[in-house]
């Protein structure tokens, strides 16, 4: 299914190559989800998250059908579930530290399974965990099926300030270059027996290296600015918008909205 021969395969290139597709690793694949207009996709995910968050804090079973939306996206897009699970796992310490609080503080029973009392706190915690997973999965589906530049155009369409998006775009572009530079410096340092240096000298060397990295970045930004100025940059980044809505986009956003409404208002 892979379209490009991008640096995704682990067999390809040196270690720092792996940074390349950190966020939109699977974005160059092809599927109906990938083909959706980024604006529609961004809007649909925003709507979905809005509805999920608005569900009452004690609702647990009612949340489960919401899983259908990210579930279908995952199934249709072909993004490996393992990748998503790993991404969710990365955020789990934060989630667990939040979910552990309600069962401790609200202990009044809400319902009984036989003689087992389920407390309000437990319901709140389960509710929180499910909501979190739903929202994170939906967001991950957005970011991993949309190339970064198109994602930014989607966000721009939704009204995020252009200056911020331009900055994000440059950040994304040059993060890799900077990571490379940092790695090169580390390699140069280690090959000069850095590990054998005394701790005090090491600390100073690290400080110095960070300073140099900063200066190099400054130099680079000056060179990039020169390149931009050479091509007539006057403060506005212009692109030709080639985005076009297709019928499938309207069907998708309509279905998503209807589905969210039915689940949400059916529950009340």
């Amino acid at each position: 299914m892979e379209r490009g021969t991008e640096g995704d395969s682990p067999a390809h290139g040196p270690a720092f190559d792996m940074h390349h597709s950190y966020l939109d690793k699977f974005a160059s694949m092809d599927s109906p989800v990938h083909r959706l207009d980024p604006r529609v996709k961004t809007l649909a995910v925003a709507v979905f998250i809005g509805f999920v968050v608005s569900v009452g804090r004690r609702e647990v079973l009612g949340l489960v059908p919401f899983a259908l939306f990210p579930g279908i996206l995952v199934a249709v897009s072909g993004v490996p579930a393992g990748y998503l699970l790993r991404r969710i796992a990365i955020t789990s310490p934060l989630l667990l530290s939040l979910a552990i609080l309600p069962p401790i503080f609200s202990r009044q029973p809400a319902l009984y399974f036989g003689s087992f009392a389920v407390t309000v706190g437990m319901l709140n915690a389960a509710n929180l965990v499910i909501k979190f997973c739903l929202c994170v999965t939906a967001t991950l589906m957005l970011t991993s099926t949309t190339p970064f530049d198109r994602l930014l155009r989607g966000l721009q369409w939704l009204g995020l300030p252009k200056a911020l998006l331009v900055q994000l775009s440059f950040l994304y572009r040059y993060l890799f270059v900077m990571a490379d530079e940092g790695i090169h410096m580390k390699v140069a340092r280690d090959s000069r027996l850095f590990a054998r240096a005394a701790p005090g000298r090491r600390l100073r060397a690290v400080g110095g290296a960070l300073g140099v990295l900063f200066l190099r970045t400054l130099d680079r930004s000056e060179r990039i600015y020169a390149a931009m100025a050479s091509r007539g940059f006057d403060g506005t980044v212009r692109t030709i918008s080639e985005l076009k809505f297709r019928a499938a986009d309207f069907v998708f956003i309509g279905a998503t909205a209807a589905y969210c409404c039915i689940l949400r208002f059916g529950l009340m």
Binding site: M228, V237, T239
Partner: peptide, 11 residues
């Protein structure tokens, strides 16, 4: 410095 080759050449 642009996200795609097209955008870069069009800049």
């Amino acid at each position: 410095f642009m996200p795609t080759v097209f955008d870069d050449v069009a800049f």
